[in-house]
Nucleic acid binder design. Structure first.
Lengths: 402, 402
DNA sequence: ACCCCTTTGTTTAGGTCTTAAGGAACCATA
DNA sequence: TATGGTTCCTTAAGACCTAAACAAAGGGGT
């Protein structure tokens, strides 16, 4: 029952992530930022220093009391690969142990092809070959349901995959630990480790892209739900008997304000949006009132629905992510009033964070599966976690002192 | 970060609760039921036996292997008082350490009176005087926001209380530990400990009564949310610009299918429901089609809204509780299809549990605040928890061997 | 009788985290 | 100079939990 959620042992990874993101930091600062006792930081950093992942650096000028000793990353231990799979392409990144991206690529892909899995494996293999550093493992994020991250058997209606042994195949072909997860869960994990979510113990992640996704963090841990499907904000029923949704139901939020729905609405209203959502955004950018109205109405719907979710979950903050944010300024006029007015009065002050979006973010999320794993000592990520750990130790011993 | 949620240490209490509810049980059975390692059960039961709360009984006939030793409650250690406060009355119960109710009472009350708090205290005092057993403490459940259970400062629009020092007052007057919580959270805790929720690690509690309430349990712990307000299912916005709700917003679920709303709707349709919801239910029971339609439509709305919540949270099961369940068979025809059809296909098999309702259930929930507390050794319930613990130890030492 | 199997329960070692208490290093001011 | 206040960090003790190994107590088949 102790921290039974998916989410590995966030704390040690969070130490590395914080140092990676903010540069060298003192132990005291670490304890404050991570909302963890100073004693624990002492213990963890001792281990990390012993493992050659951290090193003591300068002393900080002192601010009234004893000066702190800065801790910095050695960051020579190994990188991780993140893979994002969607229907028509694959994005890959190589990240350092602190979560920063050092290399990325995008490859065409056809998920519907009969040999999709083999092709995916080849694409991953080619990317792996380009790495100059020792690798800890591969994280894969994709739209769909994953049994358990450590196994990696995938069901995805979006990719038309049924019981695809993604994890097994990649492991076999490349001899690296492989962790597979739903893409939004992976992204939520990354957000918790490296993003705005670092500063909050419970938050809601909303992704605006082709679809509408959501991730939940409560008490510091990613909530997977009973069947690993928590967070499906896009499939909250909004309009009874509304347009059909991919999921098989009708009137889901996603069926109303997903990319396709927006474009369809625009087309109905006589707008020229042959090129899809980008055209619609371009029109709105140019000041086209009808285009703006499409976004604004979508914003209202999103705001009202999200208000309900927030009323139920009472998170500290809501974080928006995704490609769709490029048009956020057109959503906002509809979203803000609808959202605030739907919130319970005492929640009305809740913060929202629109994170700037880089396209490799999804893949970075996948990589964080690997980066979170080495420290999951309870084996919640199973055999694959043990392997990642093994590789990490090997390499920090080998690469540390010559 | 270790089990940071509200919710005390469920495990030890759960041991007592299970034994209380199911009678004597072997250690191995405990471990299985509570999904906890056998080693832990050994440790916990050793402590509980040492504390004179449990005792070893007979041996079970054996089923192929070594026979188990049954553990039973001594249940002489002390009782707890649960108090449920609503606008016009107060319900009180005395429960044993296993959660079973031994005594109950209901008193008239006027929460709007200027001296409401003193009167509440007198009511509690009179009930306390009727107890023949040593008491561990008092738990209070009420509709509204509570800062922290251990402090007990209450804001409640429903009771028109602002910053009422409920905990402090009762403590001062009666010299007992007092824990105060939102009523639905308290009920959810009781459900987790003594109800259907024992068997599930994540579930949703929905209360149907004057209002519509909700409680969340994820990974075994009650989710309070960032500001202690999680679970407000009743205030999910459903119809934009709909009828005004107590909370200040418009079109909330509760404003549409709360008791008052149902009665109002019935009245609009010419039904004679002067006596309120009971009349409406009586009509429906008699077969009045219009009355049934009111319930059925409400069921549809509830079903659709709840489907959204379930899609987002992915709980194992949904548990319904509350006075309103008396009319459930009239809700069900509307609820079931709307609920199932709003669920994501893979969640469609989710279980729902309609728990039979006893009116002292709310108060029992409040009492479970106290019963959960003695084992909250990390002091999450603060000073009051320490006091309850103290009393428990004192009495098990004093009352144990004569 | 004997041996193997199953189930129950305990021990041990270990990991994660916390509070409490105190030592270490620096500042300011009397 | 020394005295106290800060801030940083560590030590020590202990709660909660688990996996693994083992001990204990019964079957049943040969």
């Amino acid at each position: 029952m102790q921290r039974p959620t998916w989410g590995a042992d966030v704390t040690r990874t969070a130490v590395l992530a914080l140092i990676g993101a903010q540069g060298p930091v003192s132990r005291a600062e670490l304890a404050r930022s991570l909302k963890v006792s100073a004693a624990l930081v002492t213990q963890l950093t001792r281990q990390l220093i012993a493992d050659n992942l951290l090193e003591e650096l300068d002393v900080v000028p002192s601010a009234g009391g004893r000066p702190g000793r800065l801790l910095g990353l050695t960051s020579s231990a190994g990188n991780a690969i993140g893979v994002k799979v969607v229907a028509d392409h694959v994005a890959l990144v190589e990240v350092q142990i602190d979560g920063s991206v050092v290399r990325s690529a995008t490859e065409q892909f056809d998920a519907f092809a009969p040999d999709a899995l083999d092709r995916l494996s080849r694409i991953v293999g080619a990317f792996l070959a380009g790495s100059t550093r020792p690798l800890l493992g591969v994280g894969v994020g994709l739209p769909g349901n994953v049994d358990v991250a450590s196994q990696g058997v995938v069901d995805s209606s979006q990719l038309r995959w049924q019981q695809y042994p993604v994890g097994q195949t990649l492991r076999r072909d490349h001899g690296l630990p492989v962790l597979v997860e739903n893409n939004v869960n992976a992204l939520t994990m990354a957000e918790r480790l490296y993003g705005e979510g670092r500063h909050h113990d419970s938050f809601l992640v909303v992704t605006l892209g082709t679809g509408i996704g959501g991730g939940l963090v409560a008490d510091g841990a990613v909530v997977r739900g009973a069947s690993g499907a928590a967070g499906q904000i896009g499939h909250v029923p909004v309009i009874p008997g509304g347009p059909a949704c991919q999921c098989g139901n009708a009137g889901c939020l996603e069926a109303l304000i997903g990319e396709q729905a927006l474009v369809a609405t625009a087309r109905e209203r006589g707008l020229r949006v042959g090129g899809g959502i980008d055209d619609l955004r371009a029109l709105a950018d140019e000041g086209d009132a009808a285009a703006r109205a499409v976004f604004q109405e979508a914003g209202e719907l999103l705001g009202r629905t999200l208000a309900g979710v927030v009323n139920v979950l009472d998170p500290e903050i809501v974080i928006f992510l995704g490609e769709g944010l490029a048009a956020w300024r057109h959503w906002a006029p509809g979203f803000e009033p609808a959202f605030r007015s739907g919130l319970l009065p005492q929640l009305r002050g809740i913060g929202i964070s629109i994170e700037s979006w880089q396209d490799d973010r999804w893949a970075q999320g996948a990589a964080s599966l690997v980066l979170a794993t080495p420290f999951d000592t309870d084996g919640r990520s199973g055999e694959q976690g043990r392997l990642v750990r093994q590789r990490l130790v090997d390499q920090s011993l080998a690469g540390g002192r010559p």
